[in-house]
Design a protein around this nucleic acid. Structure first.
Lengths: 106, 106
DNA sequence: GCAACCTGTAACGATATAGGTTACGCTACG
DNA sequence: CGTAGCGTAACCTATATCGTTACAGGTTGC
């Protein structure tokens, strides 16, 4: 599902955003030469939990966003927004299957 | 985050954001004279679920954000961002209790 | 070879949330 | 009174986070 091309349509922002764990690994762990084990320990979470995030099998919870902001310094909001954009992209894939009536043309 | 009052200080956004259901009720249901029952029906969800959202006992899920965007026209992103900001504000309240080591001064 | 790591991940349990159905009590109104 | 709308409790299911433990595979170095 992540390897679609589909750049031919109206080209809304269909960018298939990377899951935040991918960004986390490339922007935080690798530059600092951190192992998954060491980073998980610093974040105060289990290695399993961090591994799940890094490999896209878990999302960044609000609390995790705060942890990341403490450890790596970026704002918790930026971490959480990455997750939100990713979750929203997934939900949008199913938009046409939702049975909803328009109530306003706002 | 958009409702800052520019208090001249660094002033982190400690505004205790309203839960998104409050905004939903005031900006969508009331202006259209919609009952909770009617709105829930239009959204394709149960009255219980909408009631929970409106009264702050449930959040706006990614799928619900898409439903709201169909029914009321605002972007799904704007609906979901409201929820994210609220969840983050809650998580920040517990920041000081998290045992996390700083790894970078980025 | 072998020991020491690092890693992904399966298995299991605990906890939390979203969502549905059903049902109860309350309020407002014609 | 009867009806409509509302909040919400009870109960169920599905999913998600997070933890611990354990296993298998890969590196690296002695």
């Amino acid at each position: 599902m992540s390897t679609m091309k589909t750049t031919t349509e109206k080209s809304m922002v269909m960018h298939n955003p990377p899951h935040p764990g991918e960004v986390l690994r490339e922007l935080c762990l690798e530059p600092l030469g951190l192992t998954v084990t060491a980073a998980a320990d610093a974040l105060g979470i289990s290695r399993k939990t961090l591994s799940a995030i890094l490999n896209g099998r878990a999302g960044i919870s609000p609390e995790m966003a705060v942890r990341l902001s403490i450890a790596f310094g970026a704002s918790a909001e930026s971490w959480l927004n990455q997750q939100t954009q990713y979750d929203l992209w997934l939900a949008e894939q199913n938009r046409k299957n939702l049975k909803v009536r328009k109530l306003s043309a706002a």
